[in-house]
Simulated scan of single mutants.
Amino acid sequence: MPRQEIVAAVQRWLVEVVVGLNLCPFARRPLRAGQVRLAVSEARDDDPLMAELLAEMQRLDRAPVEELETTLLILPDHLPDFADFNQFLDLAEWLIERHDYSGIYQLATFHPAYQFAGTNPADAENLTNRAPYPILHLIREASIERVLKSYPDPESIPENNIRRVESLGEEEKHRLFPYLFRW
């Protein structure tokens, strides 16, 4: 699939799902300000992906937060199986620690087949982390700390998100998550 179509699908998901459903109350401002980098990975196995992930952290190091708040590394050609993706996250966390990025960057993850532990695949709460492609989202820890200071009751965000996606009708789910119903 052409890179621009991949980016367009993720952009649509960000606008309609993440911001549109208010799943991340902190996403609207950087998205509107053009401070979100959507990088399409060319990796087809773990080693090149690790190199790309490190390069994206280094890019964030070099860019002022006013220009680049966060990066979503989109994986169209690697880790389509959620179990493999989940296993890879141990390597990604190791990379963050090994390069002294703990406390600087946090990794949020999304996947078309995302499934929280203890849930069934069809449980609505899994929709909160389902995206058109596997995604590694690098977030600046300082930015999280800054926005959490002014956000009332941040602990309620996950529960609010679950209630929001549970309230979606089937037609709305098909519209917002077409990639989940293409087969």
Score class of each variant (00 low, 15 high):
L89M: 06
R98H: 13
L73H: 07
E66D: 14
N120H: 10
P48L: 05
P152R: 00
E125L: 04
P80R: 10
H99G: 06
W13K: 09
G169Y: 03
E42H: 09
L148P: 09
T119W: 01
L73E: 11
V19N: 04
E166L: 12
A27K: 00
I104D: 11
L168P: 08
R163H: 08
R175K: 12
N22E: 04
E5L: 12
E52K: 03
A43Q: 13
D81K: 15
N161D: 15
Q106K: 03
A43S: 13
A9L: 04
P48E: 02
I139W: 00
P76I: 03
L21P: 13
Y179W: 07
N126R: 07
L176E: 09
C24G: 02
L14D: 10
Q115G: 08
P25D: 12
E56F: 02
Q11H: 09
V15D: 13
L148R: 05
T71G: 09
L148Y: 01
Q115V: 01
I157K: 07
E141G: 00
E125R: 02
D46C: 05
P132A: 00
C24Q: 04
S150M: 06
L23T: 04
N129E: 10
F116M: 14
M50T: 13
E69Y: 01
R29C: 04
F85W: 06
H78T: 13
L180Q: 14
E145H: 02
D153T: 10
R182H: 12
P152N: 01
L60G: 10
V165N: 00
R59C: 14
A8D: 14
A108C: 10
L60Q: 12
D46W: 01
A131E: 06
E56Q: 11
T109A: 05
R59N: 09
V7H: 05
Q115A: 12
R146T: 11
F116Q: 10
E69R: 00
E159P: 02
M57K: 14
D100I: 02
I162Y: 04
V65C: 06
A83Y: 01
P134A: 03
F26D: 03
H137I: 03
L176N: 13
E145S: 05
T70I: 05
P80K: 11
R62C: 11
N129D: 10
I6V: 15
R29K: 12
L38I: 08
